[in-house]
Each structure stands twice: as C-alpha cells, then as structure tokens.
Design a protein around this nucleic acid. Structure first.
Lengths: 205, 205
DNA sequence: TAATTTTATTGATTCAGGTCAATGGATTTT
DNA sequence: AAAATCCATTGACCTGAATCAATAAAATTA
C-alpha cells in the first residue's frame, strides 16, 4: 500500500454513494486503485488515445480541453474532490478527442476501465455508483449547456466570480476566456465594461 | 392490459440491456408502465414543472426546447425507438427548464419516477439499465456539444442531410434553424450558398 | 536587479450572423 | 376555389466578437 492517506477521501466518497458497501467490497475496490502524483504541465490524457482511467483528484487542478483548428478550447476545470476523465472515450472505447492537462502539481487516484467493469460484475451496488456518476456528469453537462445557451459572456463571467472565484484565482485569464468560448481580447474588454459601472456589480444577485 | 403490442418494442429494448431480466421481473417493470397516445401539438412536458416520466416513443416525433428571451430554442428531436425526457429535471426533481412538444401524432410508453426508483431497489439489474441510459444520454450530449463547438453551421446542416435526412423531411426548416442555433434567414442563406456550388455537395464525405 | 518570457490591455479593421422589412410560395381553412 | 395563415427567401443595415497589431504589465529566470 503506497499512501493509505490518499484513499481516505475517495473511500468516504464511495461510502457515501454506496451505503451498503462492506469492508470486503471496499478492499476489492481499493485493489483496483492506483495513486499517481503529477507535476504541473503533465498530460493526464492524450488526444487520440482511448481513455482508460477515471481519475479522482486528491489535490491539485486539471483542465480538459480539445483542439479546434489548432486552437485550444477548454471545456472544464477539475479540482480536489472531483472526478476527471474523458468519460465519453472511457465509455465508448473510442479515441479521445479531449486532452487533460495538470495545471498545478496534482495527486490523483485512478480507477482503470477493466477494474471498474469487474466491480460492476462483482459488486451489485457498484452499478448504483456507476449510475450516479453518469447521472451527475449528465446533469453537469446539461447545466453547462443551458448556461452557455442562455447567459451572456458577461453574466457567465460574473457568475464565475460569484460562485467559483477559486477559478479566477488559480488559472490565468486567457484560460477563463477559452472556457467561456471567447478570445482573451474579448474577455478583457468585457472586464473593462464591467469596471466602468461598478455600481452594477454590487447589485448582481 | 391496454395494448400489449405497444410494449413489445420496449420489452426487447429492456431485454437487450438487461439480459438477466426474468419474466417475473419484466412483469414488475410492465406494471409501472403506461401507454399514452398524443395528438400533434400536445405538450408532453410543461416548463416549470418537475418531469415525472421517462417516455419511450413507440411511434411519432417530439421536440425538446426551451425559451430564451421569449424565443424557442430547440435542443433535440426524438423519434420512434428513442427515449425522451427532461432527464435533468427528472433526476434532480427540480422544475423543468425544457418543454417537450409532440410534432406528429405520437404514442409513448411512460415510466414514472417513483416506479423507476422502485425498480432500482427491487431489481439489481435495473441499476445497470439506469446506468446505461445515463451513460448513453451523457455520450449523446457530449457528442452534440463537440459538434456544435467544432463544426460550422454549414457543416452541421450537411451532416443532418447525410446522416439524419428524416429530420429534414419531417420538420419545417425554421425548426432545423432553431436546432442549429441560427435564425431561419441565416439557414436559408446557408442553403443558397451551398446550392451555388453543387459540385461540393457531391464531395462531402 | 536585469533580462526574458508570459499574460493582459487597447486600438483598428473585418465579417458572420442578427434584425427589420418586403415579397412570394405553400399549405390549410372555410 | 378563395381567403387566410404559415413558411421560405431575399435585401439593407447593424452589431458583437474575431483578427491583426502594438504595447504595457506581470511573472519567471538568469
């Protein structure tokens, strides 16, 4: 056992989602897991390869993005306590379109595809876990789509400041711009607009 | 039993996803189901209410959409053999943002929320079904997002013609425009552009 | 601390698609 | 079949964001 400490957060996560999980079943789960520490800048998932792991972030920060016309488009950021993965590739076993890159020194606990399938077979409750993970991911991606479709970039940026200010602090602004789907220049101008009417910002929510 | 015929398609669907399903378990599933026939124009899901059913379309066609600034934005079309639902509302039990409207006379088989939760508890294999449905929906929404993010409206329209030509035939063009996220005028101009260079269209794919 | 690289800002220009408006087909209703 | 409604097309104009370009500021590295 490498660093039992690293599993503690994940174990409580599993336990919360699968209350019926016995200690023996947890041992079976734990046997599938691998802890990895990754330096800032490392690629956790390359484009064009099948995604073989779901990674639970113990500490650190990663981004998922893809290349369109050679330009990077960031789809999401994942920090400590969250799962990250190109789940589409993981599920379909097709090559990944997304890349995953470590933005800060990061520690992850990886669950391999085969190991997870084994858990689905051996532990009935694991299917509940799988269902809940897929459902959560689905809800998240729906919510994101709805926000993108309904809110202006300015509203979305304000919402980041209000609800996910750690993002603003931990990643450079051009990545925020990429995440919001605009150029760094455009986001800079939006900020300038917002700052010109400081009374408004106090009224948001 | 209302119209046993209506269940046949759904039963084979369930059987395919849950090979271990016994006849007794199927009976339990069937007991939860309700068949409904709906006239063109009917609302299958209203905005602001919690979505209580997953609906399997036996025949017909529906659209899901939401209102933004009073304008309709179509998110997807579902035809015979597909599930439709505001699955986000269904899962979270929060009011639905989406509306679902019947575009052709349609027959659906509805599975209520409570019934499905009961199945998850009573039939372990039902969690596999729930997992697979959530996974499929997740994959679909990812794929859609990737297409929207990467392909021009022209490419997306060509792709509809090549891969989902039934859509072009069964829904008016202004709905296609809404689905693609542009105005009817814009789509009309895109078609005009495409028709001006007919050699190109033969080369697509 | 100076040098270098990275990141953010601002200006000028361009362009795709939106909006507004008018017209002409299609389809449905009476 | 005539009237009315719905739908698609086309034109003129406008706007928001992309692009290109030049600095300025901030963060790293030497």
């Amino acid at each position: 056992m490498e660093t039992p400490l690293a599993y503690r957060q994940l174990k409580s996560y599993y336990k919360a989602l699968m209350p019926t999980l016995t200690e023996a079943e947890w041992q079976l789960c734990e046997g599938q897991l691998r802890v990895r520490t990754l330096k800032k800048g490392t690629m956790l998932q390359q484009q064009g390869t099948v995604c073989n792991y779901v990674s639970f972030v113990n500490y650190g920060l990663v981004r998922t993005y893809y290349l369109s016309d050679g330009k990077e488009k960031i789809t999401e950021f994942f920090k400590e306590g969250e799962y990250t993965c190109d789940y589409r590739s993981f599920l379909t076993r097709e090559p990944s379109i997304s890349l995953i890159q470590v933005l800060e020194d990061t520690e992850v606990v990886e669950t391999p595809y085969d190991g997870l399938q084994m858990l689905y077979r051996e532990i009935p409750a694991a299917n509940i876990l799988g269902r809940l993970i897929a459902e959560k991911l689905f809800i998240d991606v729906c919510t994101r789509s709805e926000v993108q479709a309904n809110d202006s970039i300015e509203q979305q940026y304000q919402s980041l400041i209000n609800n996910r200010s750690w993002l603003i602090q931990r990643v450079p602004q051009y990545m925020i711009a990429s995440y919001l789907g605009v150029t760094p220049e455009a986001l800079s101008r939006i900020k300038a607009r917002v700052n010109k009417r400081p009374l408004q910002s106090a009224l948001v929510y």
